[in-house]
Design a binder for these strands. Structure first.
Lengths: 333, 333
DNA sequence: TTGTACGCGTTATCAT
DNA sequence: ATGATAACGCGTACAA
C-alpha cells in the first residue's frame, strides 16, 4: 500500500497551489478552464481521491450515518437496512451498521461510538429504550430518524416513521369478518412492543365495532418467532377449540400458527384462517402461501435515509411519516 | 446540539495542557496519579469523548472496517454480517455495510468510498470481480479478508476464508449412497460461482469414486433462489423421472426442489431425498425440515473480523482459512 | 484568477 | 511529570 496522494502532490506536479486543486476537486468557480482541465487530467491519471477524514475535520460533515437495529439477521430489519443502504448509495453516503441484540449496554456503546465518529445522522430502531434516554441521545446528533416510536413532542431534529399498525390490524379483522368468521384470535407480540400495543388496539376496535364481543381468552402474547407462534397457537386452540381465524403479530408467528393448525389436523384456511404481518420473503415460500399485511420495508428504509438527509440539510420536511400496510390475499385466509 | 467538548476545554478547566489530558485519555504514562484522577473526574462529569475524526487524521487509524456483500437481505450474508458486527463490537470497531446488488459500478464506487473514508480493513464477499480488479483493489487497503475466493498467490495483506465445498458435497453424496440411492441429481448454482464449481467437483468425485457413472443429465444450473430451484427440479424430474435424490446448491434451491417434488406427488424423503447447503434459519421452519450441510456463517463472520484485525496488526496469522461444513440430518434425507 | 494564512482536534516529538 | 510546537490533509477567509 503506497502513500496516499494529497492535494499538495497534485498541486506540485501541476505547478499550482493546493487551493486551485481544491477548487477543481470541489467544482468551485475561480479557476480558468485551462488550468481546470490540466488538473482534472492529473487527478485522473494519478488516481487522486480526497481524504474524507481530513475533509470531515474541517467541514464537520462525514457523509456517513449510523443505522441501529436489534438484529440485522431478522428479515424485517434486513429489508430496512437494505433500503437505507440503497438510498445512502444514491446520496453518496455510507452506513455504519450496528446490532443491539436487545442489549442496552451494547446499544449505549454503539451510540457513543457513532457519536465519536461524528455521523451526520442516525436511523434508530429501538423498541426498548426509555423516553428519557431516547431524548437525551437524540439531542447529541445533528438529525435522527426514529423507526416505530411515537414522540409526544418530537425534537426539531427528529423524524418518526411508523407503520399504521391499527389500520393494518383492522383490515385483517375486517377480512375475517367478511368471510363470516367470528371466533377471531390474536397472537400478539412482546408486551413492551409499541407495534404490539397498536395492533392490539386495532384488533379490539375492529372486533367490537362489528358487534362481536371482545374475548380476552382469544388474545395471547408470544415472542415474535416461529417456535413461539407454534406453541402459542397450540395452547390457544386447546383453550378455545372453536377459533376460526388467527391474526398474528408478524409473519413468523403466523407461520408457527399455521403449522400448529396443521399439526392438530385443522386445515388452513378451511378450518382456521391465518393472517400475518410484514410480508417477509418467507411468506410466499411457505405453503399455503401466507395472506399478510404487506409493509414495504425497503421503502421505509429508503424513506428514512432520504428524510434524514432532508433534516440534515434543514430542508422543510414532515416530522412524522405514517406508512400504510396493505392486505395481500394469498392462500391462508 | 451543543458544541463538542475538546481536549482544550478539559485542559482549560483543569488548568493543565492538552497533552496532559491526551495522555490521560489514552492511558499513557507520564502523568501524576493526582492529576490523572482530577482529569478523569472532569472527563466523566463534563461528558467528554474524543473526536475520532481528528484522532484518525493523525494516527491514520479509523477503527472502522468495510463489509461488502452482494445483498444483506440474503440470509446467508445477513448471518455473516451479524458475525462481523458482533466481533467488531467486541474489538471496538465499527462496520460500514455495503451492498453491491451484483452491480459492478456500485461495487467500484463502494470501494472508492471506503478507501476515501480510510477504513482500516475490508471484508469482501465478491463472486463476480475478476482477478485483476481484485488484486488491484486489495493493494489499496491495509488489510483484506476475502470470502469465498481462492487466490493462487495471496498478497501478504490478505486472508481468504473459504467453505470446504468439495468435502461438503461429498458428505451429502455419501449419505445418499449409504441410503442405497443411485440416481443422484445435483441442482447447481450460477455457473460463474466459485462455490458452485467446487461443489460440483465434490459431487462428481464422490459419485464416480463410488462406481456410479456420472450422468450429465442429472446436473443442472439455476439461480440460487427458491423459484429457480422449483423450476429446475420440475424440469429435472420430467427429464429423469427415476431420480431418487437431489443435492441442491443451497437451502433455497433445496426448498424449491422439495416443493416441486410435492407438486409432482413424490414424497420427500421416501421417493426423493433432498439435501441443501448452508443451513439457513428457514431450513428448520419448512416442513419437512431440511437435511443440509450446516455452515456456521456467524462464526465465519466473526473469524473474518478477527483475522482482519490480526492482519492489520501484522500479527502472525494464517493466510487462508478453510471452514468445514457439517451434515445435519433432519427430515428431508 | 490565483495564492497565503489559518484552523479543525488530535497525537508525536522534543523540550523543560 | 508536564508543556510548547508541529504536524495530519483539507477548506474557509481574505489578500493579491
Amino acid at each position: 500500500m503506497k502513500r496516499r496522494l494529497t492535494l499538495a502532490d497534485i498541486a506540485d506536479t501541476a505547478g499550482v497551489s493546493v487551493m486551485t486543486v481544491s477548487r477543481v476537486i470541489n467544482d468551485k468557480p475561480g479557476v480558468s478552464d485551462e488550468v481546470r482541465q490540466t488538473i482534472l487530467a492529473l487527478v485522473e491519471s494519478m488516481g487522486y481521491r480526497p481524504n474524507q477524514i481530513a475533509r470531515s475535520l474541517v467541514t464537520e460533515q462525514t457523509t456517513s450515518v449510523g443505522l441501529i437495529v436489534p438484529d440485522n439477521t431478522n428479515p424485517f430489519f434486513a429489508q430496512i437496512a437494505r433500503g437505507v443502504e440503497d438510498a445512502a448509495y444514491a446520496l453518496q453516503y455510507s452506513v455504519f451498521l450496528v446490532n443491539t441484540v436487545e442489549n442496552p449496554q451494547r446499544e449505549f456503546d454503539a451510540l457513543d461510538s457513532l457519536w465519536q465518529k461524528d455521523v451526520d445522522g442516525l436511523i434508530w430502531c429501538s423498541a426498548r429504550v426509555s423516553h428519557e434516554v431516547l431524548e437525551a441521545q437524540i439531542s447529541r446528533f445533528p438529525a435522527v430518524v426514529l423507526l416505530n416510536r411515537e414522540l409526544t413532542e418530537p425534537p426539531c431534529n427528529t423524524i418518526t416513521i411508523n407503520v399504521n399498525d391499527r389500520h393494518g390490524a383492522r383490515q385483517a379483522v375486517a377480512h375475517f369478518l367478511a368471510q363470516g368468521r367470528r371466533r377471531i384470535a390474536y397472537l400478539n407480540g412482546p408486551e413492551h412492543s409499541v407495534s404490539a400495543h397498536r395492533r392490539l388496539e386495532g384488533y379490539r376496535d375492529a372486533i367490537t365495532e362489528a358487534g362481536v364481543p371482545f374475548d380476552e381468552g382469544l388474545v395471547d402474547c408470544c415472542l415474535p418467532d416461529t417456535d413461539s407462534g407454534y406453541d402459542a397457537a397450540l395452547a390457544l386452540l386447546d383453550r378455545c377449540p372453536n377459533v376460526d381465524a388467527i391474526l398474528a403479530f408478524n409473519d413468523l408467528v403466523a407461520i408457527g400458527a399455521m403449522q400448529a393448525c396443521q399439526a392438530l389436523g385443522r386445515s388452513v384456511p378451511q378450518n382456521v384462517a391465518v393472517i400475518g404481518f410484514d410480508d417477509i420473503p418467507l411468506a410466499t415460500i411457505i405453503k399455503p402461501q401466507l395472506t399478510t399485511l404487506h409493509v414495504d420495508l425497503r421503502h421505509i428504509g429508503e424513506s428514512a435515509m432520504r428524510a434524514l438527509l432532508d433534516k440534515m440539510e434543514e430542508a422543510a420536511c414532515p416530522s412524522a411519516i405514517l406508512i400504510e400496510p396493505e392486505l395481500v390475499l394469498r392462500d391462508s385466509a
